[in-house]
Write a protein that binds this DNA or RNA. Structure first.
Length: 939
DNA sequence: GACATCACG
DNA sequence: GACGTACGTGATGTCC
């Protein structure tokens, strides 16, 4: 038996969480070969422990050692302040299953592994450090966390294992500007954005240290705050006293954590080679076991290579060994016992691929028919829930529910447990669809992964991201076409009428494919450096958009209906007039016939033929012709009304959901190459606004009784981003000063003072500004402005001369695209440009798209980030505020009238700050807001 | 299903 | 020197 802890002893306390996070982020994602379990962080953790105990610590050699972990997410600090650590990101899903394994690893190393429910590791470390100090021993805290620096001094030091550097009194003083004893005072004032400790607004570490050094302690400072000379600072300290005192309680470590062990329990023990090597073998760490064995003077264990038939295809090598698809092996789950088994398997794994089958494609109206699951490549099952008889003379009449299906209610209850289990990742292809179907059945599926969005992050611009494309491209497997199952055209049936045996093959295959794609894509995300893009801007959008789509927007049918009738009359009148002018009757809605009339019968000049050999009659051509004849003008009028009627007043009514009385669009997250969303069925991102007549359509988009619609939109976001990316000082300055940007551009280009600016000159500058974003050409600008091409080219030359950064940006961007086959947004979104090295006209398109993509894409990223943060920010309004629509640079909300102004304040802050903290824009983002009873009034 | 047209940012 | 020509979308109607 050894003596108890005291003088001459040296306790080393390792901050376990810090080790895990370091290990996780320092290493590429690694999975255990035999079953795909993520173990990268465990391996890193073990290696860090190995190196630590094998290290020559000189005078600081440990006699006692422990690894300290956090336990439970709720601590006394959450009771003090509910926002404590509230803006922490969720733990990456790959990391979660590795936490218990690191505890096992610690034990395998024969190192004490300690945690106390409801206490942070920091508090336990503080308690042990104090006990050791009082007993006369020395302490080394293995961490570089600044929150622990308050403990340094009197025999306690820290050690930064990454930098291999000891942190003593002097080092702490250097960092905080005060002695370790006063570090908490400085932290209380400066606050901490990582832990969400509020502190004193406007006071950072520097100022805090200055104040503490002047007054001695925080308490003294607060008592004598009146003496501070700077008025702003004085006011802050007086007004925010409570908040500062709270902050101190949050940062002050609790050295009185109740412990069920003593310092003596932490005595250094040699690892038992058998136990440790056994654990490392189990984890299949080959080279690490070898190194450990060497260190211990033991024999390295032999770890068998996994046999191919049990190996998960976790590698993404060019030709991974591919398990064949065997549709006959798929299981049909017809009783709760079997379902229970499958759910158990999913729980054991920690993940499961999921697919829902329904009666239609519209998530708001389709009914759930069945669910498929896949836990391992090749091993998938389908759970039929509401399949019905086709009625071809069987025992069951047409439409009868078929027997031997798990009851909807029972299955949903069991699946709800699994789908809402935070420790099981649910993997889907286009999860928003399944999430909405399940939400309508009372299940809030989470956490999720989405193979469509993974592909979008990885392969954006290369190809589409539908299951068929991905399966053929990455698994060399053509999935069963849906039309083989439900047919096409008139004889098409709904999925509930598909025989269960056929449905099983189809549905289980989809889940199987999804799981295989996930295993393939998951490790690629890190390698392609798009993990953050996927985790911050694609995946979290799924629940946000699902909610928006399910909310829908109220559309007044009567308004649309009345407008539609009026349009009919107008069109009839115009049609008669057009026939009169043409001298014959023809289909005004047929561009081919219009071209024929204008350019053949009437002999007007300027007819150009399109690729189908017909005359082309787009609006700009007709506008030019309108100066010489009335007919083209009337045709334009007709087309405008026809568009408004068919696409808006008529079609929109068809989209009013009979149950909710509202219109529910659907957003494609992975549709647009640049990162923009796209709105379909109906498209609510192209509701008219530019003309007075069109804008009236927006009057039919209304708020419910007692509510208002609130619209917030980014002002000139793309030009601001261009100014930032290309580093155009003159434009940045104009934005910072809040100037009219087009007028400022014109002034800079033509030397006209702002107060002498004419609308015409400003209009030209505006066209150039937009042209630049689109990868301008002299021809295009000339056509847009209807000026001679040479003049347009002159403008562009002048623009490049005045803003040389723009030209440089364009050249650098195309150069980058040609070299790498891709461009990137400021937030790291990758947009591939496969055509950039093509020849012919396609090269021009690709070049302009490459120039535009980082600008449009960065703007898309910004609003995505705002949308992801929005639900948390507006949570305080409860059901009083709902986010309904996104229109690229605009967010539309429906809000109780009494909180509309508050909502505007909150939402504006989120939107204007959406780039932070990843990107520091050198121009401000400005959001304009409006509100009213309908969308026209809110804009 | 291709094409033309036009609605939006 | 010719070629085509502003970026990104979705819906509707005609016509084959």
């Amino acid at each position: 038996m050894s003596e108890s802890f005291g003088k001459g002893c040296h306790l080393h306390l390792i901050d376990g969480s810090a080790f895990i996070f370091r290990a996780f982020h320092a290493l590429p994602p690694l999975t255990r070969k035999s079953d795909g379990l993520p173990v990268g962080a465990v391996q890193g953790f073990c290696d860090m422990l190995r190196r630590y105990i094998g290290k020559d610590h000189g005078d600081f050699a440990p006699t006692h050692i422990a690894v300290i972990f956090d336990k439970g997410s709720h601590t006394f600090r959450n009771d003090l302040y509910d926002q404590y650590k509230a803006n922490r990101d969720e733990m990456p899903e790959d990391m979660r299953p590795q936490i218990p394994l690191t505890r096992r690893a610690t034990e395998a190393f024969n190192i004490a592994c300690k945690e106390v429910e409801g206490y942070e590791a920091d508090d336990i470390i503080a308690t042990l450090a104090c006990q050791a100090r009082e007993a006369g021993g020395q302490v080394t805290i293995v961490s570089s966390d600044k929150d622990l620096m308050q403990l340094v001094g009197n025999g306690v030091e820290m050690f930064d294992a990454m930098k291999n550097r000891r942190i003593d009194r002097e080092a702490v003083e250097e960092k905080f500007g005060v002695a370790p004893e006063r570090v908490v005072d400085v932290q209380a004032l400066a606050g901490d954005s990582v832990d969400n400790v509020p502190g004193a607004p406007g006071i950072g570490v520097k100022t805090a240290a200055l104040l503490i050094n002047e007054f001695g302690t925080l308490e003294e400072l607060l008592d004598r705050a009146e003496e501070i000379k700077q008025p702003k600072r004085r006011q802050t300290l007086i007004e925010k006293r409570e908040q500062i005192e709270l902050s101190k309680r949050l940062v002050l470590l609790d050295a009185h954590t109740p412990l069920d062990f003593t310092l003596d329990d932490l005595e250094l023990r040699d690892p038992d080679p058998e136990t440790l090597l056994g654990f490392l073998s189990e984890m299949e760490f080959r080279s690490l076991s070898k190194r450990v064995a060497e260190q211990l003077g033991a024999e390295a264990p032999v770890i068998p290579e996994t046999s191919p038939d049990t190996a998960a295809p976790a590698s993404d090598d060019a030709t991974p060994e591919q398990l064949p698809f065997k549709p006959d092996d798929y299981i049909c789950i017809r009783d709760v016992e079997t379902l229970e088994t499958w759910i158990g398997q999913a729980r054991n794994r920690g993940w499961v691929a999921v697919d829902t089958e329904t009666t239609g494609l519209n998530e708001m109206t389709a009914d759930l028919v069945g669910v498929s699951l896949c836990v391992e490549a090749g091993s998938a099952a389908y759970i039929p829930l509401s399949h019905r008889a086709q009625g071809d003379g069987d025992l069951f009449g047409p439409g009868d529910l078929l027997p031997e299906q798990v009851s909807m209610q029972a299955a949903l209850a069991m699946l709800k447990d699994l789908f809402e289990d935070p420790s099981v990742i649910k993997i889907g292809q286009n999860m928003k669809y399944d999430a909405k179907i399940l939400a309508r059945n009372g299940i809030e599926i989470a956490p999720i992964d989405d193979t469509m969005l993974m592909s979008y992050a990885l392969n954006g611009g290369e190809h589409g991201h539908g299951m068929d494309v991905l399966s053929e491209r990455y698994l060399s497997h053509q999935p069963i076409p849906i039309k083989d199952v439900i047919g096409t055209g008139k004889s098409q049936i709904t999925f509930d009428l598909v025989p269960i045996a056929d449905a099983t093959k189809y549905a289980a295959e989809d889940a199987d494919i999804t799981l295989r794609l996930w295993e393939l894509f998951k490790p690629q995300l890190h390698r392609a450096h798009v993990t953050r893009v996927y985790e911050r801007m694609e995946r979290p959008l799924v629940p946000v958009l699902a909610q928006m789509e399910m909310s829908g927007i109220k559309v007044d049918r009567d308004t649309l209906s009345r407008m539609s009738s009026a349009f009919s009359q107008t069109m009839a009148g115009l049609e008669a007039e057009i026939h009169e002018l043409a001298g014959e009757t023809f289909n005004v809605g047929s561009p081919a016939q219009v071209g024929e009339i204008l350019f053949e019968r009437m002999g007007l000049e300027g007819g150009k033929k399109g690729k189908n050999g017909k005359y082309s009659t787009p609006a700009d051509v007709l506008e030019d012709l309108a100066t010489v004849h009335d007919l083209p003008a009337r045709i334009l009028d007709y087309r405008q009304v026809q568009k408004l009627k068919s696409t808006y007043t008529d079609a929109l009514q068809e989209h009013i959901n009979p149950v909710t009385g509202r219109v529910h669009t659907s957003y494609s997250i992975a549709g647009a190459n640049t990162g923009r969303l796209a709105s379909t069925e109906p498209n609510l991102q192209n509701i008219p606004v530019r003309t007075e007549e069109g804008r009236r359509i927006r009057e039919a988009f209304v708020a419910d009784e007692g509510k208002v619609l609130v619209s917030l939109d980014y002002s000139q976001i793309e030009l601001r981003i261009l100014a930032h990316i290309a580093g155009i000082d003159a434009l940045k300055e104009a934005f910072r000063e809040g100037q009219d940007i087009h007028a400022a551009t014109a002034s800079e280009m033509f030397g006209v003072p702002l107060d002498e600016m004419t609308p015409e000159v400003r209009r030209q500058a505006k066209a150039i500004n937009f042209g630049v974003i689109y990868g301008i050409s002299g021809f295009g600008l000339a056509r847009n402005l209807r000026i001679p091409r040479a003049d347009a080219q002159g403008f562009i030359d002048r623009y490049f001369e005045r803003f040389p950064g723009i030209k440089a940006y364009m050249d650098e961007t195309t150069g980058f695209a040609k070299e790498h086959g891709r461009v990137e947004t400021l937030f790291g979104r990758v947009i591939h440009t496969p055509e950039i090295n093509a020849r012919g006209p396609r090269a021009g398109f690709a070049r302009r798209a490459a120039i535009n993509a980082p600008i449009q894409g960065t703007a898309a990223d910004v609003i995505r980030r705002a949308m992801v943060r929005m639900p948390g920010a507006i949570e305080r309004f409860g059901t009083k505020a709902m986010m309904l629509l996104q229109v690229h640079d605009e967010l539309l909300f429906e809000v109780d009238a009494d909180v509309a102004e508050d909502l505007i304040g909150v939402a504006r802050e989120v939107m204007e700050g959406a780039a932070d903290p990843v990107v520091q824009l050198s121009v401000p983002l400005v959001v304009e807001a409006g509100q009213g009873p309908n969308w026209a009034a809110a804009h």
